[in-house]
Design a protein around this nucleic acid. Structure first.
Lengths: 292, 292
DNA sequence: TATTTTTATGTATTTTTACTACATAAATGG
DNA sequence: CCATTTATGTAGTAAAAATACATAAAAATA
């Protein structure tokens, strides 16, 4: 694990400009203000035009560029364009309530993105590797999830074409228990629980293991569930304030399922992948035509 | 329908380039390949340098620029920079069978992260605002989702404590249709479909609207579904290579649900939020003790 | 306050960069 | 195989960006 997608900041020039506004020379500030006022228009402008708009001379614009740490006007424009890609669409209608909403939107995205990044950095590739190996050999896969995690289990189950073997996701406790009881060597049980403390899931997992199935646990922290798992995948998320619903735990679990299913699918032979592609094509047609 | 969601697909220039690769002239393709190979280096290059790197003449580079719909080299560079802000490490490099697991993990995370970022930047806050207003006043909320989107609908339904009113998420087509038929003015139907073409969901939404309910559509693109929606929320994702399962569409829809539920919850009074906090505490205890 | 020094900004000029007109080469079609 | 179209490069032009220098403003010192 070496790549870390820096979510933002280092190339957010607009931010840099806004922050350095007070330290700028008078004329430079004029330029800064002109840019901040309508950034999207600025990137279409030429140096001379920008100078005219900001009512300063051309060299001033260039000096402004180096003042904010850019290597000339060209570089500034490129950095600005990058930064602009992140800028929210705050074009018009800035009502106060709307403004508040904007903050909520921003925070929730930020929260989920940075958490996903965190999960990635903490993820143990070797656990994934072992899990992929186990899943690739499985004759049958059952996903155990309860409550919020049931959604993830169902998501996983829907990816059965990628896994290439029958997949199940029993939802209620009894079904889960019965399913676990019917597993045997060669089968794999994937237990999903953010807290890792959900009784139903733990019991089902223990039983599945007793029956000889390989057990994989996907959880948000080190927890009781992992005691009954041959392979533990921990999707460690950052601390969670009360305001945020723990959507992130589901998101990260789903990304892990995405990784597992993709990796398993890639491990299979070409014919299998052809069948998957074929299936997708048919699904698309089916949707379009509107009948089954 | 008042969605805007300007489908500025040309914002994602890398995608445009990659896709138009086969239709390009031989020399132009050389330029395209040079850019795709190392986009981040290209934006630092001058026209002449790029021409040299791609081993073509300067006018060819300019012709390439207009071929992919840019207004000259300068414009191309700006658009490329924008696109690059999201593309991070690998967005367009498809996962291949010979990728090692570490690469797969990295690519899938990158893909989902940059896509989520893209969704955020394209999200129309005013649509969210209207949706929040409608949901806050709702007497009852029904989430319609089919297939993969059923998962999102269920996720939304599970957040009913935040919405503060009874929420449903009928899963099979008939139930969905019957539910829609029973809706009335004051109710809200939230239709979730990435393609926006799923027949069941469209029919249910149309019916719900006929019955007087307010209809909200969460979809991945401008689509037929939105015709029957009073409010359209478009979670525009980047183009999707075939090997990636469209997990991203579910992720982004879930984040949007997260935003909606949080915003609705915040709009309610303190007593409501206290009840939610209380409920969470009990849930935690329940899990620990292992009995109901 | 007057004078010097420093800093900020504009004018004029040069250099670089992007673009265009035209010519030649390659490809296509009859 | 020749005519016609299409693709690509050469050479030159327009433009944009950057620089050197000069002047104005401000700050510091006497």
């Amino acid at each position: 694990m070496d790549t870390i997608a820096t979510t933002e900041m280092d190339d957010n020039l607009l931010e840099v400009i806004a922050r350095s506004l007070p330290n700028l020379r008078k004329s430079d500030r004029r330029v800064a203000e002109a840019i901040l006022a309508e950034p999207s228009k600025m990137i279409e402008m030429t140096l001379a035009e920008l100078a005219r708009t900001a009512e300063v001379s051309e060299p001033t614009v260039i000096r402004f560029c180096s003042a904010i740490g850019c290597d000339g006007f060209r570089d500034m424009r490129v950095k600005l364009a990058r930064s602009l890609a992140f800028a929210r669409t705050t074009s018009h209608s800035a009502i106060s309530t709307d403004d508040h909403l904007g903050a909520i939107i921003g925070k929730i995205f930020d929260f989920n993105l940075s958490n996903l990044n965190w999960v990635r950095s903490k993820l143990d590739p070797s656990a994934i590797a072992t899990a992929v190996a186990a899943l690739s050999k499985a004759k049958r896969i059952e996903f155990f999830g309860f409550g919020a995690s049931a959604i993830v289990a169902r998501d996983a189950q829907q990816k059965f074409p990628l896994f290439g073997v029958p997949c199940g996701a029993p939802t209620d406790g009894h079904q889960m228990f019965m399913t676990a009881a019917m597993l045997q060597a060669g089968d794999v049980a994937v237990a999903i629980s953010n807290t890792g403390q959900t009784r139903e899931v733990i019991q089902a997992t223990r039983l599945a293991r007793e029956r000889g199935a390989t057990t994989i646990g996907i959880t948000g922290m080190d927890s009781p569930l992992l005691r009954y798992c041959d392979i533990g995948i921990v999707a460690e998320t950052l601390e969670n304030t009360d305001l945020y619903t723990p959507t992130i735990s589901r998101l990260s679990a789903m990304v892990i399922i995405d990784i597992l299913s993709t990796a398993v699918s890639l491990a299979q032979d070409d014919r299998h992948r052809e069948r998957v592609a074929d299936m997708k094509r048919h699904l698309a047609e089916m949707r379009m035509l509107g009948h089954y």
